[in-house]
Write a protein that binds this DNA or RNA. Structure first.
Lengths: 139, 139
DNA sequence: TTTGTAATGTTATAATATAACAATTCTACT
DNA sequence: AGTAGAATTGTTATATTATAACATTACAAA
């Protein structure tokens, strides 16, 4: 099997691509919708031996820190991001009907918000936008 | 004491301005920072008789539905909003140092996001943006 | 003044997340 | 190879956030 982008990323950065990390990322990547931490846990049974919440949360934190996973705060759920280079921002369109999520990849904070940040000399570390409603299929 | 904006809003709309609702809103309004539901609960002791979580969550839901309270998802905490007319969106700048929060009142979804919504014919009900970092005092 | 609806009270529990410390594994260095 | 130090994981327990379910009360309109 080919080396995944995430594994390669770890190799290059001198980070450890461990079994819990690999397994957790894999479950999130395979999920077609945002997945909760305890659902990740439930799906790890095959691959890890009786995993516990901290195992999942640590791996999630690790991947979030490197931009491979985002949290959708309004759902308490996680999604994989193809981009392994962490943007400061994440943006999602969430259908409250079918649960489908689309990630938007904006490279910059929108003008109106950026203006505020600059004005107040705020040192931004991260930002997120979450848009809820119904997708065209559900409405 | 003068009739509050929220009470007036309820009178005009034929909504009940009940004691739990009034008390919960008051606590959130008086808080200078986002306040968690259980902290609201703790501060209600004087005014309500042994309140329980559902009491708080119901009142919060009520006020959120009418735009008097917003939830900051990334903090699991709530803030009061002066505007009693619900915009679809809320935007916050959150200092991770001192916990201060500034609400930004954008009337419209930023262009780049709006474009996506329109393209995909998404029926938006609400949106939020949350910006984290350090305010000028904390950095 | 009844009658239906909305709101609240109450009990219990679900769902999400982290603290604390022990055990293990990996890496770098000798 | 052997070992010290650091990072990671294992494990137990518990904290935090939120809601389900049903009983009771208060209100508004006929």
């Amino acid at each position: 099997m080919a080396v995944s982008q995430a594994e390669q990323f770890c190799n290059e950065k001198g980070l450890r691509y461990t079994e819990p990390r690999a397994a957790v990322l894999s479950v999130i990547q395979k999920s077609k919708k945002p997945i909760g931490a305890y659902d990740v846990l439930a799906q790890l049974g095959d691959r890890l031996d009786n995993p516990k919440p901290p195992t999942i949360y640590r791996a999630i934190e690790f991947w979030m820190g490197h931009g491979f996973v985002h949290k959708i705060e309004s759902l308490n759920a996680f999604v994989a991001c193809e981009a392994g280079h962490a943007h400061k921002g994440s943006q999602f369109i969430v259908c409250d009907g079918c649960g489908a999520v689309e990630e938007i990849h904006l490279c910059h904070l929108p003008e109106a918000l950026d203006k505020k940040i600059t004005e107040s000399q705020f040192d931004m570390t991260r930002w997120s936008a979450e848009i809820h409603g119904l997708c065209v299929k559900c409405s």
